[in-house]
Structure formats: structure tokens, C-alpha cells
């Protein structure tokens, strides 16, 4: 990509969040500052409860009340924004709509003509590899296919930034690897700026240009790891030596945080 050296598409400036609960304040995210370039693929990895989903919800606009600022193309945004699209961890395909009508959904809400939205939706279904399934309902499709519907639906708004919150968490390992390759291919094809939340280290290494390791609560960026594997990537690289080194390096940093998280969890449950 030639235009890598542009101004950042997404800029987080001292973004932080405290939840007030009846049991006192909980600092979920310590100030995070981050620039993401056009076409870049960023992963945020961290233990459960590190605030990575909170951070994602802030960028996606679902949480509007936070400290600091979020800028898209240099313009400060707050709340849901059409330049930022989100894919969720849970099943989110509308079960009462066919694959095609799931993808047309946001365009329908925005009042785009039927002809245009169907055409665009067919292109997107092709992009995610669901040709021929456009008239099927989600219940007739596999979990991986349903998640691809959700991705296509989010892309229907042509967001500048694609946020994915553990989109493969509910899938089995093999489906997850194949879907990772698919996401990479889409990201390359559209030069799509992407931010992924995951707790799968291999997945983060396979997909990302940069991996951000978050600490356990309160969440802050503990370290940034540049993934210097060559492009185009694919799941076939998993056996490589460099791949293994990167996974090991990230685990080194993550281990401590994960065990803190586990201890906290056991303390709360026990």
C-alpha cells in the first residue's frame, strides 16, 4: 500500500473510562492513546476483564460517556457513527431476515433504494463467500456463515474503520482459522482499516500489523508488538519460526496479566 504514511484514520487521545456502581467506582480503562493508519490491521489482546470490550464500545460509539477523545479523519466523534462499523461476538444476524436482507438492513434503515441495496448486498455476499446462500435464513446456515453475514452487513455501510469484538469466539478452531484467512483477504481487497479484539494469540499474530497487549484491570496498553511477518498472510504461516517467536513473546507479556485475571475471577467466584 502506497498511502501508508498518511494521517491516522483513527486517533484515540487519552481515552479512559470509570464505571460507577453501587459498590464503588471501577476504573475499566486507563488513558489510552493510539493512532491507526489507513488500511492497518490492529489487534487488542488481553485477559478477560481487561477493559478491551469497553474500549471497543467507546470507539464504536455504544458508550458515549468517557474521558478523552476519539477522532476519525481528524474530526472528533462521540456516539455511533457511520464511519465506524462493529461486528459483535454474539450471534447478531437477524433470524427473521434472509442472508440478503440481513446485509441490506443498514441500507434500508438509511433509505437507500432497493435496487442499489440489493446490488451492493450481493457484492458483499460474494466478497464474504456466501454466493448462492442469499435467500437462506440464518437458522439454515452454520455459525461461521452467520458470522460472515454479520461482517458483510457491517461492511454495507462502507465504514472507514471496522471493529470486530471477538468475532470468532463462538466458532470451532478450524472454522476460526479459515474465517481468519477470509477476513484477511477482505481487508486486503478493500484496504479496510480494522481493529480486532481477541484473546487468541495466534489469531492476533496471523491477522495483525500491530498487536496491542492490554493489562488486567484497570486496562492500559502494556506493550505494542509489531508483527513483521510478510504480506499476504495466511493461516499456513502458523508453522513458521518467526510466527512461533512472536506468539511466545506475546504470551510472555500476557501470562502475568492473565493469571492476575484468573486470580481475581477465582476470588470473586469463591
Amino acid at each position: 500500500m502506497a498511502d501508508v504514511k498518511q494521517a491516522p484514520v483513527l486517533r484515540l487521545k487519552d481515552v479512559a473510562k470509570t464505571f460507577v456502581t453501587p459498590h464503588g467506582n471501577v476504573r475499566a480503562v486507563e488513558p489510552v492513546t493510539l493512532d491507526i493508519r489507513q488500511g492497518e490491521f490492529i489487534s487488542i489482546i488481553g485477559p478477560s476483564g481487561c477493559g478491551k470490550s469497553t474500549l471497543m464500545n467507546i470507539v464504536g460509539g455504544l458508550i458515549e460517556d468517557y474521558e478523552g477523545s476519539v477522532e476519525v479523519d481528524g474530526i472528533q466523534v462521540r456516539g455511533c457513527h457511520k464511519e465506524v462499523g462493529m461486528v459483535f461476538q454474539e450471534e447478531s444476524a437477524f433470524p427473521w431476515r434472509t442472508a440478503l436482507n440481513n446485509v441490506t438492513f443498514p441500507m434500508e434503515a438509511a433509505g437507500i433504494t432497493k435496487e442499489e441495496r440489493v446490488q451492493r448486498a450481493m457484492e458483499l455476499l460474494h466478497l464474504v463467500g456466501l454466493d448462492g446462500f442469499e435467500n437462506r435464513f440464518p437458522a439454515e446456515l452454520s455459525g461461521g456463515m452467520r458470522q460472515r453475514i454479520a461482517i458483510a452487513r457491517t461492511l454495507a455501510f462502507r465504514p472507514r474503520i471496522l471493529l470486530m469484538d471477538e468475532p470468532f469466539a463462538a466458532l470451532d478452531e478450524q472454522t476460526r482459522l479459515l474465517l481468519g484467512d477470509k477476513v484477511l483477504q477482505i481487508q486486503q481487497e478493500l484496504n479496510q482499516t480494522t481493529m480486532l479484539i481477541t484473546h487468541n494469540i495466534a489469531e492476533a499474530v496471523q491477522l495483525s500489523d500491530r498487536v496491542l497487549i492490554m493489562s488486567f484491570r484497570p486496562g492500559r496498553i502494556k506493550r505494542v508488538v509489531e508483527i513483521d511477518l510478510p504480506h499476504p498472510r495466511s493461516s499456513k504461516m502458523m508453522g513458521g519460526e518467526r510466527f512461533g517467536q512472536l506468539v511466545a513473546a506475546i504470551w510472555e507479556d500476557l501470562r502475568e496479566e492473565a493469571s492476575k485475571g484468573l486470580q481475581e475471577l477465582e476470588r470473586v467466584r469463591g
Binding site: 470509570t18 464505571f19 460507577v20 453501587p22 467506582n25 460517556d65 474521558e67
Partner: peptide, 10 residues
């Protein structure tokens, strides 16, 4: 800026 969110009963 007081960035707080009330969880629980108002």
C-alpha cells in the same frame, strides 16, 4: 470531565 455512568437503580 466527569466521565461516569451509573449502573443500577436510579
Amino acid at each position: 470531565m466527569a466521565a461516569v455512568e451509573y449502573i443500577g437503580r436510579k
